[in-house]
Design a protein around this nucleic acid. Sequence first.
DNA 1: TACCTTTACGGGCACGTGCCCGTAATTCAT
DNA 2: ATGAATTACGGGCACGTGCCCGTAAAGGTA
Lengths: 352, 352
Amino acid sequence: MEKENELFGVKEIARRANVSTATVDRVLHNRTGVSEKTKAKINAIIKEMDYQPNILASRLASKKIISLAALLPDVSEETDFWSAPLNGIRRAEAEMKQYGVQVQVFLFDLNHKDSFADQIRLVLDAGFHGILISPSFIEETRKFAVECARRKIPYVFIDSDIPDLHSLSYIGPHLRKSGYVGAKLLTYRLEPEKKVLIINISKEIDNYNYLEIEDGFRAYFNDNNQPNEIVRIDIRETDYQSVARHLTYVFHLNKDIGAAFVTNSRVHTVASFLKNSHRTHVSLIGYDFVRENVDYLEDNVIDFLICHRPDDQGYRGMMALYQTLVVNAPVTKQNYMPIDIVTKENYEFYQN
Amino acid sequence: MEKENELFGVKEIARRANVSTATVDRVLHNRTGVSEKTKAKINAIIKEMDYQPNILASRLASKKIISLAALLPDVSEETDFWSAPLNGIRRAEAEMKQYGVQVQVFLFDLNHKDSFADQIRLVLDAGFHGILISPSFIEETRKFAVECARRKIPYVFIDSDIPDLHSLSYIGPHLRKSGYVGAKLLTYRLEPEKKVLIINISKEIDNYNYLEIEDGFRAYFNDNNQPNEIVRIDIRETDYQSVARHLTYVFHLNKDIGAAFVTNSRVHTVASFLKNSHRTHVSLIGYDFVRENVDYLEDNVIDFLICHRPDDQGYRGMMALYQTLVVNAPVTKQNYMPIDIVTKENYEFYQN
DNA sequence: TACCTTTACGGGCACGTGCCCGTAATTCAT
DNA sequence: ATGAATTACGGGCACGTGCCCGTAAAGGTA
């Protein structure tokens, strides 16, 4: 509330240091052309004033546009999961647009590792100032990281992490804990003599996510001395017929399966199978707030969905880049998303 | 990507309409002094261009500071629940500060209706441009709403809603559905012959929240033909001794209580009682991510906490005012928060 | 000493919008 | 027709920062 009849910002610094605003500007952006003496004096004043640049004026005056890239899997006919992060990215884009930030989205095919590498090359060649990337393939991502480091381009991982690659930030779930939560929910009302089935449906071989989740899932059983036997199955085809065939076989071999845990968003395929084969008494838990899954929640076939706010992941990922490049503020390196539990009763309010 | 070698914004409008930027400005802010003819022409051009004012430049040029008030319950020794919305408000404040928006927080005592009325008067007299308020007492809030309407001050409700008062927006849970979710979780592994106990601990009489939650809770039992008998108890003192006394009595009368549902954040008091009286086999569900409750989650005494992101509520509430007053963008009238389920396994990632 | 290069700094315009102030044009009263 | 009041509009500065361009001073070379 105290009135300050001084000038603001750069002008005030200039006045106190008996220099022009241009010189202050040079110091602020550590450009050349300032003697050590004046530089020291100005820096002292900046510190003393606790000067915070006015981002409005800064972005307004600077005509240089900052361009960010986002590289994600394309939505496929199998799952529209990745439309959620894309939404978040668009949301961030709308916010940043007026500050002179442009966003360009690149999509690749999760079933074709080559398309990932191709898009990476495209992104790198275009000379973006910052990159958001879903590191779906480990080796390609590693090369990407090296190249970014060389060019000093900050990059953010979302949805799954590859440690030790010095990303600016990771934004996504703690996968192990996520599996742990799945196990808790699955066993919450499970009878001790029943078996538990872990199902992984995926064409990819590069399944770092899956391993982490299963590891966490099993850890819960260990930590809590759950007596239930765990059966697991890998299904490398994603179409309904293949999945149904494999599951029919597993259920034939194991008569007393009381609960099933699907490690990704393809849980709706399993739900479909359970419904068609009149096995809806089996508790079913899986991942991600996509329409097909929600339909089976509504239908009482899926008991719980675990979600990690993919929309928010996209938003925060872009914002982390913005914070670094525009505001020049620090961002947290690990940004674990909440492990959300979605049921028939609360899904209508869930914000993906 | 197409180059536009035209001017931007107001200047371009002025050029196309053969007027000065000042006239365009008059139209944009619908000030007087423009003939109907030119006004129409300019408006047409604005529409055609889909003109979006540059908020940076706008806020920079306008020296008028916008001041917002937030009126919430003070944190008491009984619960620090309200520190979460306050955090969100501070977060919003930090973001808005550079755009010339000031925020002032007013606190009242939930146990003293008078302090609420006093603070309302203070806020209204100070002439804020927008107000965020937790409408804890119905009648006082009603008067407040009338006064705001008269002065054309937008106001936002958080945490609980009072319908039909024409608030700019409500940001908080759908209380009925929240109780519904509580019932789902409570009964998920409940044996049919067990009784269920609803506990309301509160000094206040004005308990609109509580009624909605209990209503939703019971609705679940109806909708799903749950056979369990429901017992309920109101406890008007909040200290441990009083709560323990009442609960001892209830548990004495009802030997077969299998689960308890506490309608607010005081569930930790009940948890304490259950632990002390060696009744931890009773499932316990309550509200809010406050430290005491989380401790009992960790300790396996509380099974689930239901939360409504109070931090986010504060943030979004302030942002709704910002959107209206600064950006002049529309805000959604109903903004139901997700009904989050917090357990021992996922609480460490929960973002309150 | 005369000339050139480098260093160190100031002047001043631009960004897009808000808004004060001045004035030509129109209307009205006499 | 003359003056006053009102209406309709333009000129131009300000907001705080970025940055181009110009130039005086210092240092270097012959």
